[in-house]
Design a binder for these strands. Sequence first.
DNA 1: TCTTAAATATGATTTAAATCATGTTTTCAA
DNA 2: TTGAAAACATGATTTAAATCATATTTAAGA
Lengths: 144, 144
Amino acid sequence: MLSNSAKYALKAVLYLSLNSNEEEKLMTKDISEKINVPKSYLAKILQDLSRHGVIASSKGPKGGFYLHDNNKKISLIDIIEVIDGKQRLSSCILGFHECDSENPCVLHDIMGGANNQFVKSLEETTLEDLIADLSEGSSVFPVD
Amino acid sequence: MLSNSAKYALKAVLYLSLNSNEEEKLMTKDISEKINVPKSYLAKILQDLSRHGVIASSKGPKGGFYLHDNNKKISLIDIIEVIDGKQRLSSCILGFHECDSENPCVLHDIMGGANNQFVKSLEETTLEDLIADLSEGSSVFPVD
DNA sequence: TCTTAAATATGATTTAAATCATGTTTTCAA
DNA sequence: TTGAAAACATGATTTAAATCATATTTAAGA
């Protein structure tokens, strides 16, 4: 459903949203240790996210990755799509190309629209929402 | 969520449930052409399913794969678990090991139990149910 | 201006899933 | 009883994702 890379991206951006700002940037090394993701692999993902404007970065000494406030208004789906593309999440569970509610594959209804609902949640949920949940203590930010 | 192999298994077993019985067995070659899955790859999967009693087989000339009536009462989850194991379907979307409703990861609620519900459907749905849906014309059996 | 610390860009390597290939066993039918 | 047709078993190859490595660019600070 989600690639490993996309999961790492979500974790990293969430970590940044909790621990960074314009004054306190974070290096790949720090993030990778904290969220338990291989450093060079994470580096590639962060660079990808930065190139697409999902996160901010600056080079050189005292440089690193961080989030602007408006980056926190981004929805989760936008993070995922930078890494996995648009297709992956909406694809039929049996790999049927023309699968939709008009022309449902034999498992489409079994899924009960679970996937659609999940995608909708990803579209509607922003980083800020997750931060709110976490600060309420109603959920946990997993490391592994 | 599901491996490619598990998808192929579902398609193959469903095809068998529609087109085979004790008198009309089907060879790997026939099934693979019909459901559009590589022959030798499918062979491995069918042998796996047969070894686990999900489908029946007989060797030699006039041999092949088929389903007994009681094989049609099997639920979809049992087909999937033979191929993918028990873990894969229930794992946390962020890869968090202790993720459950007691200790939800930050995405657990976002998923809205979509995954749990999906697994439940797979547990409750039998091949017969799918066959019924198909014969009503309310769904389609996809080839690709 | 020079050194150093960071991201950036690019490509190589590893790993696991997917796919292919082939020899062995069983059983039917002539 | 023998040849052929099928599943069965096993292992090799390919491919894509995941991971690693390293040279290049940028910018801070001395």
